[in-house]
């Protein structure tokens, strides 16, 4: 029997911040971001991130959300009862039964990016599994303009999955491999992922190497999202979130095209930029809880 390799499959992960003792915290809140491809949960003790879980989304939003939060609290000694307020966000946010409020991922990403990179951040590009969002925010992480494209898979993780599968390259290595080319090839010309795949097959037939085809696709993806950024107002304090932000092949080509370097992650930062939405959700949860306590 041969084993089927799934090239799109990335590793699920979790993280606990060793410097935070939740038993000393006065409030524990969480944000759950159920995306189209990955589900993220971030648990916050007062103002610090305590733990997070990054899992794949299944066919069912409530289960995916539960899966992510359970993975986040695994080994921390926390139980669901200790979490005082949960905000749901992302594609599946309306279907999270234990979330106290649903907030759009746009507001959450802006808030989370503001927390991760600090108040300098103005332009955020979230390249997710099935959509691409360009967000402009102020120094408090409040949205000042946004644009979301979820009609088409070009410029999203789904598009990259198609190419990983076509070329039989694990998705996490696509970025690195696409940079190992002698000469930068012209970008894949088709916008549509289905046509782009056909074009990729054509290029392979012409004798292009895998790396060359990946380079052509990464560069097409970078080119595609530039127009989104221009529409909402591109500023040099620019960061990337979402799964594609970990693909160095797309990020470096985007930086080159924009002529701007993305703000690097702070040195002591251990959070995955894919968690920005969940972290933003946890921050909103903390504020909402404080507000409701004040009201009583």
């Amino acid at each position: 029997m041969t084993t089927q390799v799934e090239y799109w499959r990335w590793t699920e992960s979790r993280y606990t911040n060793p410097e935070v003792d939740w038993r000393k915290a006065s409030t524990i809140t969480a944000g759950i971001d159920v995306g189209s491809v990955s589900s993220k949960a971030a648990v916050m003790a007062d103002n610090e991130i305590l733990a997070y879980g990054l899992m794949r989304t299944g066919s069912n939003s409530p289960d995916s959300a539960l899966n992510a939060i359970n993975r986040a609290i695994e080994g921390t000694g926390l139980t669901m009862k200790d979490i005082k307020f949960i905000v749901g966000t992302g594609y599946g946010r309306i279907n999270i039964p234990f979330a106290g409020k649903a907030i759009t991922e746009i507001a959450c990403h802006a808030r989370g990016a503001n927390y991760i990179w600090g108040p300098v951040v103005r332009t955020i590009l979230d390249m997710g599994g099935q959509d691409c969002k360009a967000i402009h925010c102020d120094e408090k992480g409040k949205v000042t303009a946004f644009l979301m494209n979820d009609k088409c898979a070009a410029g999203t993780g789904r598009g990259m999955e198609v190419f990983a599968d076509l070329l039989q390259v694990p998705i996490t290595q696509v970025g690195e491999m696409s940079l190992q080319v002698d000469k930068e090839p012209p970008p894949v010309s088709s916008t549509c992922v289905v046509f782009a795949k056909s074009e990729g097959i054509g290029l392979l037939r012409q004798g292009w190497s895998k790396n060359m085809v990946l380079a052509a696709y990464c560069s097409a993806m970078a080119h595609r999202v530039v127009t989104l950024l221009e529409r909402i107002g591109m500023e040099k304090e620019f960061v990337l979130t979402g799964g594609i932000s970990k693909n160095i092949g797309v990020v470096s080509r985007l930086e080159k095209e924009l002529g701007i370097q993305a703000v690097p992650l702070p040195k002591d930062q251990k959070f995955d930029p894919q968690l920005a939405g969940a972290i933003g959700g946890a921050l909103f949860a903390r504020d909402l809880l404080a507000k409701s306590r004040k009201a009583f």
């Binding site: 402009h136 946004f146 979301m148 979820d150 088409c152 989104l228 909402i232």
Partner: peptide, 10 residues
């Protein structure tokens, strides 16, 4: 804020 609703396609 300015909310852009819609999409870009080919």
């Amino acid at each position: 804020y300015i909310a852009n609703y819609g999409y870009a396609d080919g």
